[in-house]
């Protein structure tokens, strides 16, 4: 019997590749265009229960209470002084130099770099102070301290400097680049009743 098309059966079957490749390239371009290189983002957790739920300060709780006051320079809005109050312990650090930002496309000069480095020292001082008070209290370095910190920041202060202060209070990195927690209970001073 003669079957129609029998001769063709032995030929190679050719798939139409062009549409598939078209689609595949479309997909590829889409995914490349939507791809975003993102740096890791992290969080500082702050718990601020409403005033009614908060226990009132007694003599006992007052002992484990660190107050951090941040004062901004009126013009540049960068941090000027840090004042800490812990029990009877009071210290004030003045930031002598303010950080300099490079103009777009420019590098910092050596003097400006030094200025930036000096300006970070104020946070290192705060960090050292917290290490001292926490070290005298608790013994477990992994869990953080029972001490509560309250930040009273100048409203005009650049948020950046507030974060550096929070960083200095919350912990540090040891020689092996591990994070050592210091104070975990950080909150802002209640400014609800103050005018902005």
């Amino acid at each position: 019997m003669k079957i129609r098309g029998y001769d063709k059966e032995n030929e190679e079957i050719k798939l139409a590749m062009t549409p598939m490749i078209d689609i595949v390239f479309q997909l590829l371009v889409f995914f490349i265009m939507t791809y975003k290189v993102t740096t890791m983002e992290g969080d500082y957790n702050i718990r601020m229960p409403s005033a009614a739920a908060e226990p009132t300060l007694t003599e006992e709780t007052l002992e484990d209470f660190l107050e951090v006051r941040l004062q901004a320079d009126p013009e540049t809005r960068f941090l000027q002084t840090i004042e800490v109050n812990y029990g009877a312990d009071r210290q004030v650090w003045n930031r002598s130099a303010f950080p300099v930002r490079p103009a777009p496309g420019e590098d910092l000069t050596a003097a400006q770099l030094q200025q930036n480095r000096d300006s970070r020292k104020v946070f290192a001082s705060l960090n050292q102070f917290v290490i001292n008070i926490v070290g005298s209290g608790s013994s477990d370095p992994g869990s953080g301290s029972e001490i509560e910190a309250e930040i009273d920041a100048d409203p005009a202060l650049r948020y950046e400097d507030t974060v550096y202060s929070i960083e200095a209070i919350s912990g540090y990195k040891d020689d092996q680049k591990r994070i050592v927690k210091l104070i975990e209970k950080i909150k802002f001073r209640d400014t609800t009743n103050q005018s902005p």
């Binding site: 409403s50 920041a153 005009a156 650049r158 948020y159 802002f188 400014t191």
Partner: peptide, 19 residues
């Protein structure tokens, strides 16, 4: 919050949330 934002704005925002 932006690094150059005012800390007072961050606090006001938190107060709004607390409310």
């Amino acid at each position: 919050a932006d690094m150059d934002a005012r800390t007072g704005d961050v606090q006001r925002l938190m107060n709004k949330c607390k409310a």
